[in-house]
Design a protein around this nucleic acid. Structure first.
Lengths: 138, 138
DNA sequence: GGATAAAAGGATATAAATATCCTAATTAAA
DNA sequence: TTTAATTAGGATATTTATATCCTTTTATCC
């Protein structure tokens, strides 16, 4: 469904949410903790950073973290940042003529998923997870 | 979101639904009509056929079509047939420990989408499309 | 039975996603 | 001010998905 890159991106942001007290997180630490190839994650973090979905400071003692602004971004932006502009704008089956008035077979199914990602922001991750689960890492 | 192969598979099955009076459809005709590379579609049809999601007859005058049995298959089976066994069984973010009790960030969002594909069968495509739209090809 | 039209299947080429490597820029600490 | 640790960025390798080609099998028509 999602590309590896997108999965890595969401998982990393999810991790940063839980560790916001921890301050800066280096790519090395994140890659180890999340079991993601380090240089590859590095590229993804660069991309997310350019799109202002995460924040970073360079140099010794630097690393990645989430600002308050970052946390307000909708989840759908993470997917769009990695998979490209049109993933959620165009038809899930790739039909140019697909629309609400002229829907493809999966139009309604997919619309609900897309809208749910559009409506919830990164911050909700904590709220959601804390309300349905005791802890992510027991 | 979906791979090209999956999109092609769903679109082709959707087309077969609308043309079930037409009898057999050759790969050549389908590829032309749906604007899909012919030899590639041929491979996909083979795969769908093996999984009994579509039916075929070989030889002159042969082609592909949907049997009543085929139409009873849930949409999710098409995706699983092409993208592989676990797309919908495993966590959308690839986390091994993700579950209803210990959900990942996208667990609930994705669950609804997955379940909607599980609940509707190919046949519903017609019902759904005819009830929301005049016609797919005006 | 021979010619023709179709799916089935194996082998291979091409493009894209995934992953790695190396160097530069930046910052903090020693 | 040198050294170490970090992100940023360019260049390249590897793997997987996408696509094509060619042969074989099966059925129909003449």
């Amino acid at each position: 469904m999602f590309s590896n890159s997108t999965k890595y991106a969401i998982r990393t942001i999810e991790y940063l949410l839980f560790n916001k007290e921890g301050g800066k997180n280096t790519v090395g630490a994140l890659a180890k903790e999340l079991d993601i190839p380090q240089p590859y994650l590095s590229k993804i973090m660069q991309q997310l950073s350019k799109s202002k979905l995460i924040s970073s400071t360079k140099g010794r003692g630097g690393g990645f973290y989430l600002s308050e602004e970052n946390m307000k971004r909708p989840l759908i932006d993470i997917v769009i940042c990695i998979e490209g502009k049109n993933v959620f704008r165009e038809c899930v089956l790739g039909l140019p003529e697909c629309s609400d008035d002229n829907p493809c077979m999966l139009h309604e199914h997919f619309k609900k998923f897309r809208d749910s990602l559009r409506q919830s922001v990164c911050k909700d991750g904590i709220k959601f997870l804390l309300s349905t689960s005791q802890s992510q890492k027991p």
